[in-house]
Design a protein around this nucleic acid. Structure first.
Lengths: 119, 119
DNA sequence: TGTCTATGTTGACATCCGTCGATGTCTGGT
DNA sequence: ACCAGACATCGACGGATGTCAACATAGACA
C-alpha cells in the first residue's frame, strides 16, 4: 500500500522528484523538499552532520558531539532532534548512550535533486 | 593575487571544500557554506531557481516570475536579491527588463559537497 | 532503593526572516 | 517634458528559529 503524498517524509519527497533544473517545481513539491534543506541550513547542524559522517564507524554519540561546540547540551539535543525528524540522521539508543548516524541516501538524493544530473 | 578566505563568496567557499561526509567541517567553513544553503532553504526561492533553470533559454525576466506566485512584486524582488547575492542567480539588465539565470556551477558544487562523491 | 550520568523536554527570550504597502529609480515612448 | 511600466528599496509587522536555564526521564550500578 502506497503512502499518500501528504504522508511522505522530507526524504521520500526529495527522492521522488525530478531535479530542480529540469522542470518547474510545484508549490507542493517545494514545501515537501524545503524541510530537508532547512535542516542543514544552519552552521551547527551542518557541522553535526559532518561530524557524525566522518566519525569512526560512521556514528557518534551525543557526548562526543556536545564537546565539539561551545553550546549548551539542550541546544545540541534540539539540533539533533531536527536532523533526526527530517530524516538526515538515524538514532539508536544503546544503554545510556544515543548514537547518531547519517542517512546517506537522504544526502545523496538531495545532492541529485540540486545537481540536476547524477550517475 | 589570491583572495583572503574572508573575502570568498559563498559559492567559492563551497567549491573549495571537501565533502561534508569526508572530514569534520570547521566552524569557519560551515559559516561560509551555510549562506548558500539558506538561499535555497525557502519554498519560494527553491521554486524561483527551478523556474529560471527550466525556462526557455535558461533565463527568465522578473515579470515572468512574478506571475508564478501569489506574492507581491517586492517580495519576489527580495527573494531574487537573496539568490543573486548568494551567487545562485546571475542578473542581467536588458532595456526595461531584468533577466535572471542560474549559476549552474554553484548548484553543482553544492550538490557535490552534500553528496560526498561526484563524478 | 537511591544516586549518578547521559540525554530529552519545556518555557522564555532575543533575533532573524518572510511579507506587505508605500515610495524611489530607471527606461522607453509620446 | 511628461507619463507609464518594470523593477528595486524602505520601514513595519508577525511569525519562525536558535539559544539558554531549569526540569524531567531513563538506564547503570552500588
Amino acid at each position: 500500500m502506497s503512502k499518500s503524498v501528504l504522508e511522505l517524509t522530507p526524504v521520500e519527497a526529495v527522492a521522488c522528484c525530478s531535479p530542480v533544473t529540469s522542470e518547474p517545481l510545484s508549490a507542493e513539491a517545494a514545501d515537501r523538499i524545503v524541510p530537508l534543506v532547512k535542516a542543514i541550513a544552519d552552521p551547527v547542524r551542518l557541522r553535526l552532520v559532518s561530524l557524525v559522517a566522518s566519525h569512526a564507524d560512521g556514528e557518534a554519540c551525543v557526548c562526543d558531539l556536545n564537546d565539539a561546540f561551545d553550546l549548551s547540551q539542550p541546544t545540541i539535543s534540539h539540533h539533533l532532534k531536527l536532523l533526526h525528524e527530517s530524516g538526515i540522521l538515524d538514532r539508536e539508543k544503546r544503554g545510556v548512550w544515543v548514537y547518531y548516524r547519517v542517512n546517506a541516501g537522504a544526502l545523496r538524493d538531495l545532492a541529485a535533486l540540486l545537481g540536476g544530473v547524477t550517475a
